[in-house]
């Protein structure tokens, strides 16, 4: 298991404005979320995959390395949804399995697949975003285009830089415990105690780092004036507008095609 990571490449997806990319993905996610049949999320998952490997020029191997560990969760979500779907034999006659009042119908399986494939679709599009977006550009874009307060933005960026340091910190705490002969017992209570033994020193070092960063920002008169300039400019350019239009058209065409073949269904009530 590993973090999603920004992979530097020279591609169309990489050159897009982060906020434009995020908003276009979000709008599509919003639309697909209200669809209750497995075909739409499946087709858009394929689209996401193609966007990652063709438009993002990311090697297929990298994509699978990140998805495979999550397949178990996707399967779990699918099974939970199949079991929990509220269905009645008289409304949906195609019963696959029944035990007393508990029944599984064709529609429960459809519901489960919808939720499972939709999660795969969420996963792939968020991967497309993360893998092709420089975190620094993303935060600056949030400040410039979405008016996130700059102090919050740069604070977050400073914090994001701490992530690898936190891993190091975790290892040194672990070694400090080991060298002092601290046993790592099993069981829920021991696990909770251990969580505390790690959480407190981690928070302490993080707080100290935050103080140092804040002092550095203050001493360099960060945000002394309301107007400021930026070293890295992140703007909305022509390519963003062209991409948004083409992406929008492709999505609408896919929706229309699905409707044409009678596959599109909105709302979970369509499964009842």
């Amino acid at each position: 298991m590993q973090f999603f990571e920004y992979i530097e490449r020279d591609s169309v997806m990489h050159s897009l404005n982060p906020v434009v990319k995020l908003v276009s993905i979000f709008l599509l996610m919003l639309a697909v979320t209200f669809v209750y049949e497995p075909y739409t999320p499946l087709i858009f998952s394929v689209l996401a995959f193609l966007q990652i490997i063709i438009m993002g020029r990311i090697p297929v191997r990298e994509v699978f390395k990140m998805i495979l560990p999550l397949i178990l969760v996707l399967a779990g979500i699918t099974i939970t949804s199949i079991i929990a779907f509220n269905t009645a034999a008289e409304i949906t006659p195609a019963v696959l399995f029944s035990a007393g009042r508990f029944i599984i119908t064709v529609n429960s399986v459809k519901f489960g697949l919808t939720i499972g494939l939709r999660t795969l679709f969420f996963l792939l599009y968020s991967m497309l975003f993360v893998i092709t977006t420089d975190p620094t550009d993303f935060i600056i874009s949030l400040i410039r285009q979405l008016r996130l307060p700059a102090r919050v933005g740069f604070g977050t960026l400073a914090g994001y830089r701490f992530v690898p340091l936190l891993g190091e910190e975790y290892r040194s705490i672990h070694q400090a415990h080991r060298i002092r002969g601290l046993r790592e017992d099993k069981g829920a209570v021991a696990k909770f105690r251990r969580f505390r033994k790690y959480a407190v020193p981690l928070m302490v070092t993080a707080t100290r780092k935050a103080q140092r960063v804040a002092i550095a920002m203050d001493s360099k008169c960060f945000y002394a004036y309301p107007e400021r300039t930026y070293l890295r400019e992140v703007k909305i350019r022509k390519i963003d507008i062209i991409y948004s239009i083409i992406f929008g058209i492709v999505c609408i065409v896919i929706f229309l095609a699905l409707r044409n073949y009678g596959l599109l269904a909105w709302g979970y009530r369509s499964l009842r």
Binding site: R147, P149, A150, R151, V152, G155, T156, A158, G159, Y160, F162, V163, L166, A199, L202, M203, A206, T207, K209, A210, Q211, V213, A214, I215, M217, D218, F222, Y223, P226
Partner: peptide
Amino acid sequence: MEKSLKKQYGWTTLDVVMTAVVGVVFAVL
């Protein structure tokens, strides 16, 4: 928003950075 954070509610730079760091620590958790 920037101004109001500082003036109205008395947020210091340290408060902002600390909030961000708490967010990051817990995101990792």
